[in-house]
């Protein structure tokens, strides 16, 4: 089933036409070249393709394009222009929390969703917020620690 939709992608009004059942993940990567959105499993089990849809964290592999009419989609490419990103960037850099990097764009958006909902989280809340984003490299300590750092450094931003 084809559809024509209009949605906001990283702040820009965007028209799109195609199969309504197409995965947002594929469209972002193949048609908009937003390859910061990573593909790890295509079934919602790894979180590497996480994006924000109307400010809410979703797995872009499990979102059909037809669902997006009127929605705002933010990927890492849009988020990296924000002040909040800069705070997270410094925090993860200072803890060398990025290893292979494949989970990171999704992880960063999960962190943003968490901090937006809960600006001063506990370690347990941070870990819960990241629990849908698999990382095979780090053991999660450095990432969770960096998000806690960011929540303090970014006082007032979230």
């Amino acid at each position: 089933m084809r559809c024509e939709i209009e949605f906001t992608l990283n702040g820009a009004t965007t028209q799109w036409a195609g199969e309504a059942g197409r995965k947002l993940l594929d469209v972002l990567r193949d048609e908009f070249a937003l390859v910061g959105v990573k593909c790890g499993c295509r079934e919602g089990e790894c979180g590497a393709c996480s994006v924000l849809m109307d400010g809410v964290l979703v797995n872009s592999c499990l979102v059909a394009m037809g669902r997006l009419q009127g929605c705002e989609v933010l990927t890492i490419e849009g988020y990296r222009l924000t002040e909040r990103f800069k705070v997270l960037d410094r925090a993860l850099a200072n803890r060398s929390a990025v290893q292979c990097g494949y989970c990171i764009p999704g992880m960063v958006l999960a962190a943003e969703a968490l901090l937006a909902a809960c600006p001063r989280p506990s370690d347990a809340e941070v870990r819960r917020g990241l629990s849908g984003n698999l990382c095979r490299c780090t053991g999660y300590n450095a990432i969770a620690g960096a998000i806690l750092d960011a929540s303090k450094e970014g006082e007032g931003l979230w």
């Binding site: 990927t75 890492i76 990296r80 850099a93 200072n94 292979c100 764009p105 960063v108």
Partner: peptide, 11 residues
């Protein structure tokens, strides 16, 4: 700061 941090962090 790791050499590859910035590129990986920003996607």
């Amino acid at each position: 700061i790791k050499k590859d941090h910035a590129a990986k962090m920003g996607g």
